[in-house]
Design a binder for these strands. Sequence first.
DNA 1: CTAAAGTCCGTAGTCGCTCCGGAGTCAAGT
DNA 2: ACTTGACTCCGGAGCGACTACGGACTTTAG
Lengths: 156, 156
Amino acid sequence: MKISEAAAASGCHLETIRYYERIGLLSKAARRDNGYRVYTHAEVERLRFITRGRELGFSLEEIQSLLALAEQTDMPCADVDRMARQHLADIQGRIQALQRMAQELARTIEGCAGGARARCAILGDLQAPVDRTAPNTSSAPKGGRRAAAGRPGAGP
Amino acid sequence: MKISEAAAASGCHLETIRYYERIGLLSKAARRDNGYRVYTHAEVERLRFITRGRELGFSLEEIQSLLALAEQTDMPCADVDRMARQHLADIQGRIQALQRMAQELARTIEGCAGGARARCAILGDLQAPVDRTAPNTSSAPKGGRRAAAGRPGAGP
DNA sequence: CTAAAGTCCGTAGTCGCTCCGGAGTCAAGT
DNA sequence: ACTTGACTCCGGAGCGACTACGGACTTTAG
C-alpha cells in the first residue's frame, strides 16, 4: 500500500511516517518504479505500535527500545514490564505536578475578587511566590518542556 | 547586580535570562563598561514574575500578556482572571489526559504476568489498541509535544 | 602573577513533529 | 489527447523553551 493508505491504516500522519523513516525509527520503505513508498502489513503494524506507544506517552527512544525487546520473542518480558512501570511512575509524577499547579492556580484565582488591578491577587501571586504551606520555594516543573498532553485543539 | 546574581535572586537560569532578553521578553539590560549586564531590582521582579508564571505552566506568550496587563494598574482585572481560569481548565484537561494514559498503562501492566515475550500483554496492547471500554479509538494526546511537567530529574 | 571563575557572543542541538515550495506522477473526466 | 486535481517526492525551515558549546575576554582569589 501507499503512504497515505499506511497513514490511514496506522492512524499516523503521513508526514510523520516520513519523519520516522528519516530518523531511522522505521527502516527505509521499498519503492515502486515511480519512487513512491510501498508499505507491507508488517510495517503498518510497526507503525501502529509506535503510534500507540506515543498515545501512551512513551518517547520515541523508549518506543525503539520496546520494539527491540518485542522482536526477541523468546525471552521473559521482565524488562518490558520494568520500562512500563517506570513510565507509569513518570506519568504519575507529572500528574501530581500538574495537580499542585492547578491547586495553586485555583487558590490564586479564588483570592481575586475582581477588584482593581492594583490589588489583583493573581498578579500579586505571580510576583511573589505564595508560600502558604511549605517552605519549599520551587514546587513545580522547572526541568522540562511545556506539557501539552490532552489539549484538545492544540496547533494551527 | 550581575547576571549570576539576578539568576540566583529570581530563580531563573542564567542562560535563560539571556534567552528572554534575546526574544524580547525582557528589555535589553544596561551594561557596565566591561560589557557585563546590570540588573535592577525591578528587572529581577519581572524575571521572578516570569519564572513564577512558568512554574504555574503559563506559556511565555501568556506571561507576556499578563505582564502587559499588570502594567496597567488602573483597570479591573477581569481579563487576568479570565486568562487564569482558562489556563486552569487547560491544566485540568492535561491532568485528565494523563490520568487516562496512566489508567490504560496500569491495566496493561497488570495483564502482563511476567511470562514469555511472545505472550507479553504490554507488547500486545501496544500492537493493537485495548478497546476494552469505549468504542473511542484514540483516547490520548495526539496533538502535542510530550509532557514533561514535574519530572524531577530531567536532563543530563 | 597565575589560575579559576565569571561573562560575553552567536550558533547549534534538543523533541516530535508540521508545514512549505517546487517538481514529478497518476487517475479521472472532457 | 489534454486538462485538472489529487497524490507523492524531497530537503529545509519553523515551533517552544530552553540548554550546551566554544572561544574570547574580564574579574577575583590566592
